[in-house]
């Protein structure tokens, strides 16, 4: 089922050079986004998800950051070879970004109308009047009531949810093909979060644009995403359609993440928690980076870096151990609920 490929990232490596250490923030990741698809990079803080998104827009500060390897193909062209001038044409027009903090990413001394118009005037050869008209339409599209008046408001007059809507309007201003949303709902209340997710889904369907959603919230992912990439310590450990990955997680880290979400069906027992914490990106363990925290760990995991294994069509995970168990049908069924049975299976 090959869809129109919009973005394809191949073996991207972004390192940050410190005085004595090298932080391998992104250490060889590959992912693809098709036209009109919602794809998610999921992971905990420090796993490299934001850095990998900033790289797409050429926003990684360099130095200390350095792109060591890989390519970013956007419509077949490698963005890493673009000059700063060429990148400016891409940013906001073909790829745009929505940030986590709607409070700090709007400029407090300009009206929201000015800030949205700026995007249009910068990228397109249109007059101010047309830009204003389009701004009002955009505000209407993202669900701001009475946009004709609100267009002259300053950001402090808006609530958190409305500010995030303005950020989205700004991102959509030039009709980009890809919107990168970096934790767009983390700072919002649940009710507002639901509204914003709904808005993303509507806009994506209406405009047939692709969304790269970066988040740590698996609940959010399950609601709107088509395909998911689970990141850990700078690498992708599992990928598949959301349905597949949630139903049948194959990487022990994904299983752990799912098991750690508190839910009503898990009440009364201690919640499963992944022991230890995420390794420092400058001091990753040898072999599989997850091995010190993994309930399935074997000797080989401590020496050999695991390859991506194909479990099913379109569903891959970086774990040879669970693959062997799965082939022998020894992998427990409800493994997203905890590891009580799994531990025994792993050590056997």
């Amino acid at each position: 089922m090959e869809k129109d490929l919009l973005l394809s990232v191949n073996n991207l490596k972004v390192y940050f050079h410190g005085e004595e250490t090298i932080s391998k923030a992104v250490d060889g990741i590959s992912y693809e986004v098709a036209k009109g698809q919602i794809v998610s990079l999921v992971g905990e803080s420090g796993c490299g998800k934001t850095v990998s998104a900033l790289t797409l827009l050429g926003l990684v500060p360099c130095p200390p950051g350095k792109i060591e390897d890989g390519e970013i193909l956007f419509r077949g062209k490698n963005l890493l070879n673009f000059s700063e001038q060429q990148m400016q044409k891409v940013r906001g027009r073909e790829i745009s970004m929505v940030f986590q903090e709607p409070m700090t990413s709007l400029n407090p001394v300009f009206t929201i109308g000015d800030q949205i118009q700026e995007v249009i005037l910068n990228h397109e050869n249109v007059g101010k009047e047309i830009a204003l008209k389009r701004t009002i339409t955009l505000l209407k599209d993202v669900g701001i009531p009475s946009p004709e008046e609100r267009v002259n408001d300053y950001p402090h007059l808006l609530s958190g949810g409305q500010r995030q809507r303005v950020m989205i309007a700004m991102a959509l201003a030039c009709g980009p093909d890809l919107v990168i949303a970096d934790e767009p709902t983390t700072a919002l209340d649940v009710t507002v979060q639901a509204q914003i997710l709904q808005l993303f889904r509507e806009l994506q369907q209406k405009r047939n644009m692709a969304v790269l959603l970066i988040t740590h919230n698996l609940g959010v992912v399950a609601e709107i995403v088509d395909r998911i990439y689970v990141m850990y310590a700078g690498i992708i450990v599992e990928t598949g359609t959301v349905k597949e990955v949630f139903k049948d997680p194959f990487h022990p880290y994904t299983m752990g993440l799912l098991a750690a979400i508190p839910g009503s069906s898990k009440k009364g027992k201690p919640l499963y928690s992944i022991p230890g914490s995420v390794p420092d990106s400058a001091y990753k363990p040898e072999g599989c980076p997850f091995n010190p925290r993994c309930p399935y760990v074997q000797d080989e995991c401590k020496i050999k870096f695991p390859e991506m294994v194909n479990f099913k069509a379109g569903h891959q995970a970086r774990c040879p151990i669970t693959y062997r168990l799965w082939e022998n049908q020894e992998l427990p069924k409800n493994r997203h609920f905890g590891f009580e049975n799994v531990k025994r299976a792993g050590q056997a």
């Binding site: 649940v190 507002v192 349905k243 949630f246």
Partner: peptide, 23 residues
Amino acid sequence: LMAAIPIPEPGAGKAFNPPEGDV
């Protein structure tokens, strides 16, 4: 409030009706 909780089960996406209005 309960209806707005994102459920970590794809397809459980039920009647996903976000509430109107702001806090």
